[in-house]
């Protein structure tokens, strides 16, 4: 059963060097409360798996700027000049991945798959160090699964069963990451006393270990 905690309590699960998945696309659907608490600690050397490294002064971007990320597996860093600077100076390892392949690798990690085959990246740098497998005469890259020690995701609504629901374009990686991590912390803007409508649940509560009440209580 999901447990309600504060963002400060969530930080006690973190250790140096862990692999973190953090949901969000730039600022949209990006959890921020746990990140703000992490910034108050000495914890560091994380490996970040996320769509992008945000902007310099928001969510995931703040972890980069604070020097807490040793390596990032992401699809885009261009919106955060600090990531670009650290990367050019060799102070952070960046593993750039095509966005759709990154999403599938996260899915594979949570879905018990040994990987997925995609034509994306054939003939480019994205194919470096990856196996090429031919199926019916066509070449595909083998993209291997990704796992994390902790996933921190955003949700617009949650109920006390840990079920998550999303509004607008906030689903992005938030719905993919929970099955792929050992510990899952969800920051929900609104906590519903009633169970969410089962027809609308995007993340089943069994994937979510901890819920943080974002305290919006019905105001978007």
């Amino acid at each position: 059963m999901v447990k309600f905690i504060s963002a400060a309590e969530a930080v006690t699960f973190f250790q140096n060097g862990q692999t973190l998945m953090i949901g969000g696309f730039l600022n949209c659907g990006s959890p921020e409360l746990v990140i703000n608490e992490l910034l108050k600690t000495d914890l560091k050397d994380f490996m970040l798996i996320a769509n992008d490294t945000g902007e310099a002064n928001t969510n995931r971007g703040k972890l980069i700027c604070a020097g807490k990320i040793k390596k990032a597996i992401v699809s885009h860093i261009g919106t955060n000049p600090e990531t670009v600077r650290l990367y050019n100076e060799g102070k952070i390892e960046i593993d750039l991945q095509p966005q759709g392949s990154l999403a599938e690798r996260v899915r594979a990690g949570g879905a018990g798959l040994g990987g997925i085959l995609t034509p994306v990246g054939i003939g480019t740098k994205a194919a470096e160090n990856k196996r090429i497998i031919e199926v019916d005469g066509k070449e595909y890259l083998l993209e291997t699964p990704l796992h994390a020690d902790i996933a921190v995701v955003y949700a617009t609504y949650a109920d006390r069963y840990g079920n998550l629901e999303f509004h607008g374009s906030t689903r992005n990686f938030n719905v993919l990451m929970p099955p792929a991590a050992d510990i899952v912390v969800a920051e929900a803007e609104h906590i519903s006393d009633e169970p969410l409508n089962p027809d609308n649940i995007a993340v089943p509560g069994i994937y979510v270990d901890y819920l943080i009440d974002g305290g919006r209580n019905g105001t978007l």
Binding site: F25, L26, N27, C28, G29, N51, T79, Q99, G100, A103, E104, R107, T156, F166, H167, G168, S169, T170, R171, N172, F173, N174, V175, L176, A202, L220
Partner: peptide
């Protein structure tokens, strides 16, 4: 603020449109 384009700018959704997660989008 929960509806943006890939550049992070706020947009509206046209009639008949829908939202996708990153797997469905790709």
């Amino acid at each position: 603020c929960h509806i943006t384009n890939a550049g992070g700018l706020g947009v509206t959704l046209n009639a008949g449109g829908c939202f996708l997660d990153s797997l469905a989008s790709f």
